[in-house]
Amino acid sequence: MTATMTQCLTQLVQTDYGMTDYQSEIEPRWCTGCGDNAILTAMQRLCRDEQLPPEKTVSVSGIGCASRLPHYMNAYGFHGIHGRALPIAEGIKIRRPDLSVFVTTGDGDNCSIGAAHWLHAVRYNMNMVVMLHDNQVYGLTKKQASPTSPKGLTTNTTPFGAALNPLNPLTVTLGISNVSFVAQVVDWIPELLYEVLHMAYKHKGFSFIRILQRCPNFMDHHFDNWMQDPARTRILTHSDGLRLKPELSRVYKKQETHDPLDMPRALALAALTDEVPVGILYKNPEVPCYDELRAGERPSTPSLVETVLNEEFDKVGIWPAETAEAGR
């Protein structure tokens, strides 16, 4: 196929975005040693490698440490309200399908106050990437137990230790109908973090990544057991999933070939407690996307929307003048 005239003329305009084009003027205010830095870097690398125009990229967040991310991206951003990152992102996507939408949210933001939106966003399967920064604690408010905090964790709200077993974001997401992409990765293996993020971006649909993220201030050494013992990381590889480079392959010897379409195995892997599965748990590109299903064949104009809405309202409208006349 030959290029159109617009494509040719666009080629004349040089755009070679580098990492710094995606870095905002504000320096990240995350603590030194925080895993969020690695996630931000991976996201900026993805934008650079895919040459996403900053003006066509949006990151949306709720409230929490993780949700500060839009401030540090030189792109459009929406720092929303607690737990409501997903509805905002859905609104952006359905109105502007041409934008690349990234959602950053934390375990408190997404799995507690925003849990209802999370379920329905998975079911809607709209085309966006969701990064759940899971440090298993409320960090911004200085250590309270979150839904994913491990049982027994002493925090300001659980001085005698957390009473309940933690919620598993992976098994929950895998259990929702229309789920199309679920992955887990850890912030301390940046290559895999980047690879998984890249695959999530390429997937058409709602790509959910749970990222185990270190919090050096309130959960110091919490992930040390996994970080320091590669045998406790199970890397999921597949021709349609992750492919390990030899360097990583030598360190992470525990590998499993996992077909991303194998849901029963994905559920079993997601439920592992002594090991951390890293890679694509589930990926199904055939699941319909709500934004595509609802996209009309013809564009809706603002005046058309207004006309139709007014007609609908008029069906049940009470007109003061008429009511007054009737009452006379």
Binding site: T32, G33, C34, G35, T41, Q44, R45, P190, E191
Partner: peptide, 25 residues
Amino acid sequence: TPRCTTCNECVQTNSALFAYDDNKQ
């Protein structure tokens, strides 16, 4: 370098000794 998580610990110690590359690692 490929395993660096960009956590700023080292560059804050001495930014002339440690620096970030094109991938911010």
